[in-house]
Design a protein around this nucleic acid. Structure first.
Length: 547
RNA sequence: GCGCCAGUAGCUCAGUUGGAUAGAGCAACAGCCUUCUAAGCUGUGGGUCGGGGGUUCGAUUCCCUCCUGGCGCGCCA
């Protein structure tokens, strides 16, 4: 047992000794203000009521009963309304860095997932155009959430769902056909709801090249196939440029061809939760928390998108995913209730909260103090590719992850591309590069720094204590971020820790110090470098050796 | 009208799941380059946590209500 666990254990015994109810588990937290010590507990305040005594009185009693030796506490005091603050001996605190050095890349991983399988679905763009910035936010979020879950022991599948059936694809095919006819010398007539971007012309050119026998695109089905194929290829290139890899691409069209749509309808009808009205088939989703009943099959006999959505999520359950996380724009939030309702109506024993949704607010792109709304190729929106080309993959990832999904995101292109301390991703990577520079400069192989024989008590400077504590917080932070599905917590932690690194680096030297000090600081430098790299890795951002 | 999200320093945002005197970065101001990257560091000022009620030892956090902004409310996806 080490550090916090020993302290918690000793506190529990002290609580029992003064008559606390059985099962009392002391909570320990890091005080905001370092002057308050390394750890603090509100145990006395929570025990005040059951014991019928004043909080500070309880705190004094707890301290008297506490085996400070077993708890590894150098100093303890009662403060404020009844907090008990603890300070650990510098050596005891820093010695825990050995865990970082031992674990290396695995530092920060946990076991909450216990090998269970999870599915994270994100991006899921229709193959009707290049990816836009909203998809970019989803890509960054989804990939980081998948990494967070994986770090906690989940077996994660990253999945992309292509809506390659339905009205929008028909509009795409017609739009390309219109451009082909234009090429053939006829007047341009882009259909209602069609696509106007430059990329439609490129696809038309491609088709004309590939199918010289059909210059006007009269074979609409073939036009559709080529268009979908080209756009999927293009989106894949965008994702590759962003460094996102999917394990599964699931095609909506396959739900029709393998009969899953029909079998889902049949199952829902059999469940008794459907009814017909004016020729349309409804599912009574209001019975499962939705605010109105939903059409499954339209009067014209085709299905609404709602039905394949349900059929698709049934496959997730049947494929064994005990957990499914969907990352989507908040403009789709209306779908969450009905998809869940549809799954409940299936009566398959799927949990009511399945799937989980992570919804994110809109992204606006700013350049030179003005909002950027269009790209040349896509016409009506800014593409992910535009951003990646302009500011680089790492900056795009970080900027999409530094705000929680619930907040609207302003992407400041000027800031993202600046190579200065104002740019948070640069600042963090710089911290990693500087630590790497120490080893490079000293001709020291970091692999040789194992923590063995280090005199940890040498790390007694205030800046060192703060940095050590931040590094020790990392595993709990990652676990919490994974639990909450909130990667921005990692992004913020990285920025704060980078600041501590810069402060320490500036104030204290490593190379050229007396041997025991240098060894201890090298161990700290390596530990900090490791944890920064691990954190950046979770967000899909590189940790450069030099800038 | 209904639902979801947001409202915290001049600006952009955190706030460890209810804790102590509410934080960071920009911006402003004042400093710091013989030593591992000045692509950096140190310090100062700055607040009705949208308003008002409630819950309790204690609320930025939970509940109610109102105000403002965004997004939804389709036999589109």
């Amino acid at each position: 047992m080490s550090g916090v666990d020993a302290l918690r254990d000793a506190l529990g015994k002290a609580a029992a000794a003064i008559g606390a109810p059985a099962g009392t588990t002391p909570s320990l937290e890091r005080p905001r203000d370092p002057a308050h010590g390394d750890w603090a507990t509100n145990l006395a305040m929570t025990l005040a009521k059951p014991l019928g005594r004043k909080p500070r009185e309880v705190a004094d009693a707890l301290l008297a009963a506490l085996d400070t030796g077993a708890a590894g506490v150098a100093e303890a005091s009662v403060a404020g309304p009844g907090f008990i603050n603890f300070r650990l001996a510098a050596g005891d605190l820093a010695a825990q860095l050995a865990r970082v050095l031992e674990a290396g890349p695995a530092y920060g991983t946990g076991h909450g997932g216990d090998g269970k399988v999870a599915n994270v679905e994100f991006v899921s763009a229709n193959p009707t155009g290049p990816l836009h910035v909203g998809h970019g936010r989803q890509a960054a979020l989804g990939d980081a959430i998948a990494a967070l879950l994986a770090s906690q022991g989940w077996k994660v599948t990253r999945e992309f769902y292509y809506n390659d059936a339905g009205v929008q694809i028909a509009n795409l095919a017609c739009s390309v056909q219109a451009r082909l006819r234009e090429r053939a010398g006829r007047p341009l007539e882009i259909p209602e709801g069609g696509y106007h971007g430059e990329y439609i012309k490129e696809i038309a050119a491609r088709y004309a090249e590939e199918c010289p026998g059909d210059p006007a695109g009269d074979d609409l089905e073939r036009v559709r196939q080529v268009a979908v194929r080209e756009l999927r290829k293009e989106q894949d290139l965008d994702l590759r440029a962003f460094g996102v890899k999917f394990d599964v691409y699931y095609l909506e069209s396959s739900l029709y061809t393998d009969g899953r749509v029909d079998s889902t309808v049949a199952a829902l009808v059999r469940s008794g939760h459907t009814f017909e009205d004016e020729g349309a088939l409804y599912l009574r989703t209001t019975g499962f928390g939705d605010d109105k009943d939903r059409v499954m099959r339209k009067r014209d006999g085709t299905y609404t998108y709602f039905l394949p959505d349900v059929a698709y999520h049934v496959t997730k359950w049947e494929r064994g995913f005990t957990r499914a996380v969907n990352v989507q724009g908040a403009d789709h939030h209306g779908t969450t209730a009905r998809v869940r309702a549809g799954l409940q109506a299936m009566g398959m024993g799927i949990p009511a909260g399945y799937p989980e949704y992570v919804l994110h607010q809109m992204v606006t792109v700013m350049r030179g103090g003005e909002e950027v709304k269009i790209s040349k190729r896509a016409g009506s929106y800014v593409t992910v590719r535009d951003l990646i080309d302009e500011v680089g993959r790492d900056a795009v990832r970080y900027f999409f992850l530094m705000r929680k999904g619930d907040s609207q995101l302003v992407f400041d292109v000027d800031l993202a591309r600046s190579q200065s301390e104002e740019n948070p991703v640069y600042y963090i990577q710089m911290a990693h590069a500087r630590l790497s520079g120490i080893f490079r400069q000293g001709g020291i192989d970091p692999a040789g720094i194992t923590g063995a024989g280090v005199e940890w008590a040498r790390l007694d400077q205030p800046e060192e204590r703060e940095l050590v504590k931040a590094l020790l917080d990392f595993p709990a932070l990652v676990a919490n971020a994974a639990e909450a599905l909130e990667p921005h917590r990692v992004a913020n932690w990285l920025l704060e820790t980078a600041r501590l690194v810069h402060t320490w680096y500036h104030k204290h030297h490593v190379l050229g110090e007396p041997e025991p000090v240098m060894q201890a600081r090298l161990a700290l430098a390596k530990a900090a470098r490791t944890v920064l790299a691990n954190g950046l890795g979770l967000l899909g951002i590189s940790a450069p050796e030099r800038m």
